[in-house]
Each structure stands twice: as structure tokens, then as C-alpha cells.
Design a binder for these strands. Sequence first.
DNA 1: AAAGATACATAAGATTCCAATGCATTAGAC
DNA 2: GTCTAATGCATTGGAATCTTATGTATCTTT
Lengths: 113, 113
Amino acid sequence: MIYSSELIKGTLKTIVLKLLEDNNRMYGYEITQRVKELTKDRIQITEGALYPTLHVLEQDGLVTTELEYNGKRARKYYSLSAEGKSMTKEKVNELADFMETMKFLLDIKTGIA
Amino acid sequence: MIYSSELIKGTLKTIVLKLLEDNNRMYGYEITQRVKELTKDRIQITEGALYPTLHVLEQDGLVTTELEYNGKRARKYYSLSAEGKSMTKEKVNELADFMETMKFLLDIKTGIA
DNA sequence: AAAGATACATAAGATTCCAATGCATTAGAC
DNA sequence: GTCTAATGCATTGGAATCTTATGTATCTTT
């Protein structure tokens, strides 16, 4: 199952922040591959969605960047700022809470039937 | 906690379909109030979001409508069509699956390890 | 009789994502 | 050794979806 794109909307920023919290620093392409791998291809973050999101996070001061070269190939590493770290906690908590509410709304019995 | 609007995006259609599945038929205003009540004010569906969504569902043949009058006040009742019922199951399953995936993603402590 | 709740609806704008495209480097296949 | 696929950055036009604001009208409560 590949999730319809509308479901991804609104969660992308939180996913990116959480990955950065767990991994200290990552570059864009790495993020797309990690998400694909972790979700067994169910969530495919396109570059057209990711890069604008990363740039917004940077403009908002939630992440800092370091440009590094692996040979001649540039990699732009992103790391959480202090503000980004607290924002990550907020966003993750909000999403967890939201999912509980949705679960109740949809009367979904997960795991144990 | 009131969820940021971006979280609601993409789930509205599924919420509406599920409510119609549970309640046989409902009218627009009733849906906004029911969601507000069920989520203890955490999710507020605005009419500007709901009515276009309902109209799309109708155009797609997922719901049928009956206009009724309570005195002189019109109420437009929405009911799931056969197609709407199977779509509801699909959408609810997809959202449940998505939430499990998100839960896993957000629980990750370290990238490798 | 005024105000708030009920009930429908639309329109302009913002946000956010997708699909497509472009450029460049590196690794692997043949 | 050359060609293709993968890696890595990025932008653009367009589509979809929601928000805010507005409009009309009825019913209920004070």
C-alpha cells in the first residue's frame, strides 16, 4: 500500500524534524531514502516536496546547515537548532495526540482485535 | 489542544465518510457539530471546508442527497451510496495503516541500532 | 426586537504538495 | 571505456485543499 498523497500533507514537516532529532544531521537525499526504507516504500517523499520544506525550516531558524563535499559532490547537511529541538517535541506530541483522536473518531481497533 | 490546520488536511474526507457510515444520514451542519463534540473541540470543521468537500463527494457519486424541510428551513441530508460504502472502508483502512506507520516512524530512537 | 444559533452556500487567497524538469557527479554494467 | 542508473542539489507550474470572509435566510432565546 502506498498512501495517497493527501495523507502525507501536514505530516511531512514533523517527519523531517523527528528524523533530524534521531540522527543529529542528515542531508536531503538521505532523508528521502531513509523514510522510504523505514516505511517499506509506503511513504515516498518527493524532492519537490522535501527541498521547499527544508528551506522553510531553515528560514524559520529551526535547522542549521553545513555544506560539505564528498569528492566534488556537494551535500547539504541539516541539523536541529535549539529552537528546532523544542519545536520537534511539540510537533511530535501534537501528532501523537491527533492520531489518538483520529483513532477514536474512526473507532479503529489496532493490534489486538 | 486545538490541532494545527495542516494536520486536518487530507483527513476530512475520511472523517465525513466514516460519520456517514455510522449514522446512515446526516446534514452538513450536523456533521460540524458532531465532530466538534466527539473530539472535545479539538477538531473544528469549518463550513468553508465542509461544503465543498460534500459537493465533491456527491459529484463523485459517493453520496446521495435528500433535501428536507423542517418548517421552512432546508436541510440537505447526505447518505452513502454503495460505492461510497466501499470507498469508506478503503479510506478508513488506509488511514489506520498510515497511522501505524507514523507511530512507528515517530517512535524511532536511533537511525541504526 | 435583538442576538445568537441553525443552515445553506460561495469566493478570494494561502498553503502545501506533485510532477516535471534541469544540472552535475559518481558508481556500476556491459 | 562508454552508457546507464543512482546520487545530490534545486526550481517551476499546476493542482488540491483548507481558511477567512462574506452572504442569505430561518428559528430560538432573552
